[in-house]
Amino acid sequence: MRLARLFRFCLVLALLVGPLRLTAETVRVAYFHTELSARGPGLLLRDLRRDEAPDQLAAVLDILVETAPDIVLLADIDYDAGQATLAALQTALAQRGLPLPHGFTAAPNTGVPTGLDLDRDGKWDEPEDTQAFGEFRGAGGLVLLSRYPILRDEITDLSGLLWAEFPAASLPETYGPEEQAVIRLSATGHWDVPVRLPSGDVLRLLTLHATPPVFDGPEDRNGRRNADQMRLWADYLNGWRPEGTAPPLGKAVVLGTLNADPQDGEARPGALARLRAHPRLQDPAPQATGAAAATRAQGGVNARHGGDPAHDTVDWPDTRPTDPGNLRVDYILPTRDLTVTGAGLHWPDPEDAAALARTETASRHRLIWVDLRP
């Protein structure tokens, strides 16, 4: 009798508790190109440590708190070897009610000298001659912040990969053996960062901040590099690794600034489409009515664009014929084994003048987010 009662009790308990264990928690993954990079090393850290943050920094922090991501990749955050800037960001956000205790960053390729005259202007020590444009080492790096533990021993950093070592690299004809022996593929950082979710699943964050496909000549070195930087993650999802091949990844998200729009802009045709059409990836396409309203109101170059303005993620100049206008350049692309329960683009409607002013103070780029269930 006692055994029977114990069995019924355990059965009821299993029915009550079991579903709770099987229900995965929704995770909000965000990306924000902050444009917080300062004019010199240590200046962003100084601003983070001030009693009152400067207007732009305060606006960025407020938007992060408002959107409340569980995991967020921040671009254009200056790097320091002691990672004091990362720690100061975590402190500033925690004080505002957004604790993201786990973080990762690594030295970007920006500002790293090559010793070569890459733009052929007779000088070799300018920002244009570094691995990726930067006024100083560490300018405009990437920072990943997370509510959940980062599996640091399993991180893969591909930022040091030489462009010439990437399979079928689309190197410009102007790059001879000297350039090919030095130039890296990554502009800022290609990281594979695994995060342990509350469900027990591991989510791999595949990061990048691609080279703008402009500011070059007919050799199209930046356009070629931009395309190969996107292709790296497509090949990686297929199992390619610098040292050989590996089983395809499990649950993952490609996120960052790709500097390519699906229909407009100057990126090489097909480069972005190949990544978005990867059979393992899905595109939630975050949108906002504020983005569409801004494009309609501004007109100019935007009036000639073919893409849906509701998906634009950056508010670039749009007055002169050569201006880029508003484009979709920032992306979060989850693998198809993740369920998308929501997606958004932080671009307030013009009617909310205060919120729009804060957003414009923060960055020309807009924060994007996707809610995922593993």
Results as ranks from 00 to 15, higher is better:
residue 2 R to F: 11
residue 10 C to V: 14
residue 10 C to I: 13
residue 18 G to D: 10
residue 25 E to N: 12
residue 30 A to S: 15
residue 33 H to A: 14
residue 37 S to D: 10
residue 39 R to W: 11
residue 39 R to A: 15
residue 41 P to M: 02
residue 44 L to A: 04
residue 49 R to L: 14
residue 51 D to C: 01
residue 67 T to Y: 01
residue 73 L to T: 04
residue 79 Y to S: 01
residue 83 Q to I: 00
residue 85 T to A: 12
residue 86 L to F: 00
residue 87 A to C: 04
residue 90 Q to K: 12
residue 90 Q to C: 00
residue 94 A to K: 07
residue 98 L to D: 06
residue 104 F to A: 00
residue 105 T to C: 13
residue 107 A to V: 05
residue 111 G to I: 01
residue 113 P to D: 12
residue 117 D to T: 04
residue 119 D to V: 07
residue 121 D to F: 06
residue 141 G to M: 08
residue 142 L to E: 12
residue 149 P to G: 05
residue 159 S to R: 13
residue 161 L to H: 02
residue 162 L to G: 02
residue 162 L to D: 03
residue 164 A to G: 03
residue 168 A to Y: 04
residue 171 L to R: 01
residue 172 P to S: 11
residue 176 G to I: 06
residue 176 G to T: 07
residue 182 V to D: 08
residue 189 G to P: 01
residue 190 H to G: 00
residue 197 L to G: 01
residue 199 S to G: 10
residue 200 G to C: 04
residue 202 V to S: 02
residue 205 L to C: 06
residue 208 L to R: 04
residue 212 P to H: 13
residue 217 G to Q: 13
residue 218 P to M: 11
residue 219 E to Y: 10
residue 222 N to H: 14
residue 223 G to R: 08
residue 226 N to V: 03
residue 229 Q to E: 15
residue 229 Q to T: 04
residue 230 M to T: 01
residue 231 R to K: 12
residue 236 Y to H: 14
residue 237 L to T: 07
residue 239 G to Y: 08
residue 240 W to L: 05
residue 243 E to D: 15
residue 244 G to P: 05
residue 257 T to A: 14
residue 260 A to C: 03
residue 262 P to Q: 07
residue 273 A to S: 12
residue 280 R to K: 12
residue 290 G to I: 09
residue 300 G to F: 02
residue 301 V to A: 10
residue 301 V to E: 07
residue 317 P to L: 01
residue 325 G to M: 09
residue 327 L to S: 09
residue 327 L to D: 09
residue 333 L to F: 11
residue 335 T to Y: 03
residue 349 D to Y: 03
residue 359 T to Y: 01
residue 365 H to E: 11
residue 367 L to E: 07
residue 369 W to D: 11
